[in-house]
Amino acid sequence: MTKGSTQATQKGAQGPDFKTSTSVRYGLDRVFAALVFVATLIGLVVLAVLLVDVAKDGVPLLSWSFITSFPSSIPTSAGIYPVLLGSLWLLALTALISVPLGIGAAVYLEEYATDTWLNRLVEVNISNLAGVPSIIYGLLGLGIFVNLLRPITGGPSLISGALTLSLLILPVIIIATREALRAIPDTVREGGFALGATRWEVIGSHLLPMALPGALTGTILALSRAIGETAPLIVVGAATYLTFAPDGPLSRYSALPIQIYYWVSQPQPEFQVGLAAAGIVVLMAVLILTNSFAVWLRNRYQRRI
């Protein structure tokens, strides 16, 4: 044995011990690899269980009469017609309010705003609003739209609900539109300006048409989130039990998630498990439809670029 290797042995690169600890380390490695894989799947497995459970209880109750009937205290004749209508009304009104506002704000921040402290404050404010719990928006809606502006909105009406939801999803729309605008290279803007175009002419003729598909994807996702919102609508006065179909923006209303909440809160299993599940199935179907549309839109848009 040469002097060198003796020293190496003494330094603590333990001969036989070293080998053992390697296999321990490898063993731990395999355990860890399995662990992280399982962890990734846990959420998906639970989701699958959830979907199966909901389908199992809900699908048998789906029928045309379920969609066209009104809620009733008799489980077999209860339906979701007015709340489905309410959700659609809310969706339409919310889209009408939030989309122009969101796109407008994004255009301002990306194309007009200079780097002043005030504009930076506006940006920070929007990021912050994205993290405010939805129920706080409900309180905002209650205080301002339902009570303060009661003469205009008619109190706990569809328009109050739509305004509340619009404010809720506004930050998401703004962020999505900004990303889409940022993706457009500056050469497009320069080409437009060089022809003697005003800023709006460049934005309107070139930037917005190019940014719209991307912005729309984010917007549709935001709107689909609004469909599933429950808490802010309850706070803003959406009825938890509605026997008539809403007939205008000033009408009282309810929404599908709220009907589900009402049914889940009933002690009878026909409501709590059966009807609630059926309502959930309809809700999820609507969401899958809108989200798929958004994804399809994004893929189509990406191919063009």
Partner: peptide
């Protein structure tokens, strides 16, 4: 804005608009 119409510019990297040939010229 008016100046830029009277003094035109062609850029290093061609940057036509994503519109038809006709619209590119007409816009």
């Amino acid at each position: 804005v008016n100046i830029r119409r009277r003094i035109g510019m062609v850029f290093q990297k061609p940057n036509p608009f994503s519109k038809s040939v006709y619209e590119n010229v007409a816009w």
